[in-house]
Simulated scan of single mutants.
Amino acid sequence: MRITGYRTLSTLNHWGRPVGDANGFIADGVTEVPVVLLETDGGLTGVGLGAHGDAQRIFPALEGQDPRAVTALYDRMLAHTFKSGHAGTTFGTIGAFDMALWDLKAKLAGEPLWRTLGAADRFVPGYASGLDIALDDQELAEHYTAWAERGFTGAKLKGGLDTERDVARLTAVAEVLRANTSAPALMLDVNEAWGPHQAVRLLARIEDSIELAWIEEPVRRWDVPGNRAVARAARAAVASGENLTGLEQFRPLLAADALQVVQTAGVWGITHFLRVATLAHGHDLPVSPVGYHANPLAHAAAAVPNHLVTEVQGTETPVGVTVDQVIADGGIVLGDSPGLGITIDESAIGELDRTGAWSHPDGPHVRPATAGLRLVPAQGPVGTEDGS
């Protein structure tokens, strides 16, 4: 079997609520979901979800190759871009193709990817995550009540703009989750909104009021001494890594004991997650995938020995996308469909008459000029912001 071509699509996810973080939010809750379809001469098509802006540049590394050689082809894609580097959209495109390759490999074996990767259990423990910074108090409680009804005992909130608001919201969600446990696991994600000295002071203020399992991205993703300083001062673990691309970016952080929970983004692909998980395992650290549509990394999470918990951001699926899994019992129950269990309805996607808005100037993918530089809480529609 040989790889013969690819197609790229873009569909939409309707979150049903505003979604975002300390950097901004999408008010209408409609965002784009890129899709890659990898074609073979054997009639099978692999599905990958994630950015495909560099598909034309990356695909020559795959054309004519046997898709079963997944890890070798991953390295071939990296080698194909070594002069210009593999960060950002390039790494995302490699990840989307890699996801499609693993989907093909499991389909060729006639089994779900979690079995191909050697997992024994189809259940993947999860925590609830609402990208919820723009929700008011009632909306927040209603949102996490729905998660509690699905058996979840942990939740991650977006924050970092106002410590008093963060504590109040964490407390409210803890009360909701106590329907399932006397000690809910609470995480706070500030999405790199703090400077190192801010992070130490503001996190101490939060931890005086509530126990956190981890603080996520308290400072810039590459800041080894900053993350280490937070880790030394905090009772909570420091979690980060979703925006790091390649093992070379993780090594200095792990060598300095600057992270206690190692994360990877769902859009960076299966092979990247597996390699990061192995690196983390070598440091006796847990790994936790950051959520993405259809939870493709859940298959790989089920197969690694140091998986802690997977972020689950929603129960809806994008337009034209179906997935063989169930969100229940506080996690993801993977199905038996071959591959990732993801099916794409191209006709439904073709009928869409609008685009999504992750890259909107007010959205969470655009870093505000004042991030890390605020002295007082900033007034705004999603609350206020503490600085130092």
Rank of each mutant, 00 (worst) to 15 (best):
R7G: 02
L9S: 04
I26F: 10
D28P: 00
V33E: 14
P34N: 07
V36N: 02
L37E: 03
G42T: 13
D54K: 06
Q56R: 15
Q56H: 12
R57N: 06
F59T: 12
A61E: 06
L62E: 11
L62V: 11
D66K: 03
R68S: 15
V70Y: 07
A72V: 03
D75P: 02
T81P: 00
T81L: 03
G85H: 11
G92V: 08
G95Q: 04
L104W: 09
L117F: 12
G118K: 11
P125D: 04
D136H: 04
Q138K: 12
Y144T: 01
T145W: 04
A146V: 06
G151C: 03
F152S: 03
A155P: 08
L157W: 02
K158G: 05
D162C: 12
T163E: 05
V167Y: 04
R169K: 09
A172R: 14
R178V: 06
R178Q: 10
N180F: 11
L186N: 05
D189A: 08
G195K: 07
A199L: 04
A204L: 02
R205K: 14
S209K: 12
E216P: 03
P218D: 01
G226T: 08
N227C: 08
R232L: 14
V238G: 07
S240G: 10
G246E: 01
V262I: 14
V267R: 14
H272K: 02
V276H: 03
H281G: 13
D284E: 13
D284W: 12
S288C: 14
V290S: 03
V290D: 07
H293T: 12
H293I: 10
N295T: 09
N295F: 09
N295C: 15
P296F: 13
P296K: 15
L308T: 08
L308N: 06
V309G: 00
E311S: 11
E311A: 10
V312C: 11
V312T: 13
V321R: 03
D324K: 05
D329Y: 01
G330I: 00
G335W: 03
S337H: 09
L340D: 08
A348C: 05
A348I: 05
E351S: 12
A357R: 15
A357P: 00
A357H: 15
W358M: 10
P361S: 06
D362N: 14
V366G: 00
R367P: 00
T384V: 00
E385D: 05
